[in-house]
Design a protein around this nucleic acid. Structure first.
Lengths: 136, 136
DNA sequence: TAGTTTCTGTAGGATAACCTACACTTTATC
DNA sequence: GATAAAGTGTAGGTTATCCTACAGAAACTA
């Protein structure tokens, strides 16, 4: 009777790799290694890719003698999952509470605050009908 | 040559315990167990308390035959650390970027948006009026 | 074709995180 | 004291995370 301990959706090390794939698209391990934000040994990187593949967060296809890796799990989904966890841990599950605490606690420049105000205003205006527009 | 793998500041299991201590103050293991958001075996809880004690996140003092545990690490500090990690992973380290993405991606009720707008407005006013804040 | 380079597959090991079991200590009760 | 109840300390085990090493396979070059 072994109690299963479910693995984290994305571990810190895995997120580092996914980050590169989310930005760059389809890459070979060597290319990921080059674009990596810190020095990483090829073998260590490949370990992360292997577990990401097993967990289904990436796919790969052969090209020449190497594989091209591509993200399956989307950045937005992963982001939501992690913010959700944070909100549950610290804010009784309320995303609004999480945002509020962030606004209160962190140092934000006046221009950043202004932008956030505008963003909230936009967001408030289109809660109902109105199609969403691209922009930024 | 063994490369050290530094432990997480607060693991998910540890946060659960700290959450109770942050809310309730000083408690005995049994009391924590009663207030715990999910069923937990006393021994499992005590394991968490032990590691929290070793890491210095809690202290304890004897009362009767049991110990009273109290948080040392403050909720705000832990919260900041975790949001910082998230911002670094997903938003190039920008807290404002993190907040923006939360506002955009999550479902917020109109009233919540209004509150956030007001909060940002307050926050903006404060920064402007007392402009000699050197920050940090 | 042989030789070299480059990439992959797999085994293995170290630490961390989580839980359980059981014996020991302390306190209260008789 | 003797005893039971409640709380503690410690040893042990399983899974997860992270990294390394080395041998083999695939492609390129001569």
């Amino acid at each position: 009777m072994t109690k299963k301990q479910q693995p984290m959706a994305l571990t810190p090390g895995e997120i580092e790799v996914m980050q590169v794939l989310w930005e760059q698209g389809e890459l070979k391990p060597t290319e990921i290694e080059e674009r990596f934000p810190r020095p990483i040994k090829n073998a260590a990187l490949r370990f992360q890719l292997k577990t990401l593949l097993e967990k289904g967060h990436v796919t790969r296809r052969k090209e020449g003698k190497a594989y091209l890796y591509q993200a399956v799990t989307q950045r937005e989904g992963a982001f939501k999952k992690m913010t959700r966890r944070l909100a549950e841990s610290f804010c009784q599950g309320s995303t609004a509470g999480l945002i509020a605490e962030l606004i209160k606690s962190e140092e934000l420049s006046p221009s950043e605050i202004k932008e956030l105000q505008e963003l909230a205003a936009q967001r408030g205006a289109k809660t109902k009908s109105s199609r969403r527009r691209e922009s930024k």
